[in-house]
């Protein structure tokens, strides 16, 4: 019994159908509990006022935006090395979810930044890196959409994912360098983890768990969808071939 058994689409689907209800319900419960807890039952921060409540959306989505890319990287590597189709499809399935997470992180960050920093957008290293990550996601998805042949698309996108990862990390440090060059030491980003007190911490943990579970549920569901698309296409191809043969016989 090894993990690679689930590279078989049928086995993967069977397991994923069994796990999914738990994930959906778990993420639903966690998100509802965490967000309600955070929204209604936590005090305001003495400096940030009620805007501190945005943290329950901002931090988990930012976390998942990065982790989704990381998951795509691992799945791409598995595809390149072991050529399991499920892996390539999982990477494809994760990308739009990652885009949504990045968008949520950017939007909530901008909305929080408006009253706190007095601006919607600042070219702060963190914000800038996220914007760049968003561009990488867009390119990745666009490449998947542009190529007809599924295996070619899987190969090309996984190489793009590897190269993109290197450049995303590189950009992260380049951006850090670039902005320090602009304003010496005047960093806008508050380090969130440090000044988070327990009152905010526990609902935040619940929300993070909710986002993780939701991500897993979405990715499993979407991977299943991609597998079915692939199967439908294969069946239809066989059908037309069969029809062609019959026509030749007649």
């Amino acid at each position: 019994m090894s993990l690679w058994e689930y590279a078989n689409p049928v086995k993967f689907l069977r397991l994923s159908e069994r796990v999914q209800p738990w994930l959906w319900w778990g993420s639903g419960v966690c998100l509802v509990v965490g967000l309600i807890w955070g929204f209604f039952f936590t005090p305001d921060d003495f400096r940030q006022g009620s805007t501190v409540k945005i943290i329950y959306l901002h931090v988990p989505s930012a976390l998942m935006a990065i982790n989704a890319w990381f998951m795509m990287l691992v799945a791409s590597l598995i595809w390149i090395v072991r050529r399991h189709h499920v892996s390539a499809l999982a990477a494809r399935a994760a990308a739009p979810v990652g885009i949504v997470m990045t968008l949520i992180a950017l939007f909530t960050g901008a909305i929080w930044g408006q009253p706190m920093w007095g601006t919607w957008w600042a070219w702060d290293p963190r914000l800038t890196s996220f914007l760049i990550l968003f561009l990488f996601y867009l390119g990745y998805v666009a490449l998947w959409e542009a190529i007809e042949d599924p295996d070619t698309a899987a190969d090309l996108t996984s190489i793009l994912c590897l190269v993109g990862t290197v450049f995303a990390v590189l950009s992260r440090y380049a951006v850090l360098f670039w902005n320090q060059g602009l304003h010496q030491g005047a960093s806008l980003s508050l380090d969130k983890e440090e000044n988070v007190a327990d009152v905010f911490y526990f609902p935040l943990l619940v929300c993070i768990a909710g986002f993780v579970l939701l991500f897993l549920a979405l990715v499993l569901y979407r991977t299943g969808t991609e597998i079915r698309v692939r199967r439908t296409r294969a069946l239809m191809a066989r059908e037309t071939r069969g029809a062609g043969l019959r026509a030749e016989e007649a």
Binding site: D44, S50, K53, I54, V100, L103, I104, F107, T108, L218
Partner: peptide, 23 residues
């Protein structure tokens, strides 16, 4: 929510809309 009500509510609204949309 004090004077930041708008910001907090719109952040929640945008996020929930996006999450629901992807689901």
């Amino acid at each position: 929510l004090g004077k930041y009500a708008e910001a907090v509510l719109s952040a929640y609204a945008v996020s929930i809309v996006l999450l629901v949309a992807i689901v």
